[in-house]
């Protein structure tokens, strides 16, 4: 994304929240959904825009699980590790994902096609183990189904 374009997007997000310092988390959420992650320049701009020290912006951006300071792949894979999924074998699904994609959780594939993450619960426990790719829910996952499901993403 061009630097100017990125700046405009963050500017637009900031204008929605005026100078409300307490809106920092909401601003970071919106910024991330616009850009895909939180680049250093965006954090600087948020810090200036809200009048919050960069140290605080950085601490919030790294404390909460929702935020990423690194670029993400085109498809975000979230393997649910909630308790209901755990007792139904989510660990084995994650292991298989890591093996097939040749990355560890929290990493991107080198071609930036996939990012592999885990999530603590999405509340679709009836269908566990659950894997969410982008906005698609893949329920009742097994290690055997992993390669098949991933093939659908270009």
């Amino acid at each position: 994304m061009a630097v100017r374009q990125q700046k405009e997007k963050v500017g637009h997000v900031l204008s929605k929240y005026k100078k409300d310092k307490s809106a920092l988390i909401d601003v970071l959420h919106d910024t991330q959904s616009e850009i895909g992650y939180l680049p250093r320049e965006a954090l600087d701009q948020v810090s200036d825009g809200l009048g919050v020290p960069l140290s605080r912006v950085y601490s919030v951006a790294t404390f909460f699980k929702a935020f990423s300071l690194e670029p993400r792949g085109r498809h975000l894979i979230n393997v649910c590790m909630g308790t209901a999924c755990h007792v139904r074998g989510a660990d084995r699904v994650l292991e298989k994902m890591e093996k097939v994609l040749k990355i560890k959780k929290g990493q991107n594939t080198p071609d930036l096609k996939f990012t592999l993450e885990t999530v603590n619960c999405v509340g679709a426990c009836a269908l566990g183990p659950m894997v969410i790719i982008g906005e698609d829910y893949h329920g009742e996952m097994t290690p055997e189904k992993v390669s098949e499901v991933l093939k659908n993403y270009k």
Partner: peptide, 8 residues
């Protein structure tokens, strides 16, 4: 309404 950041 304010959104959380995913911290137990």
């Amino acid at each position: 309404m304010k959104r959380g950041g995913g911290a137990f």
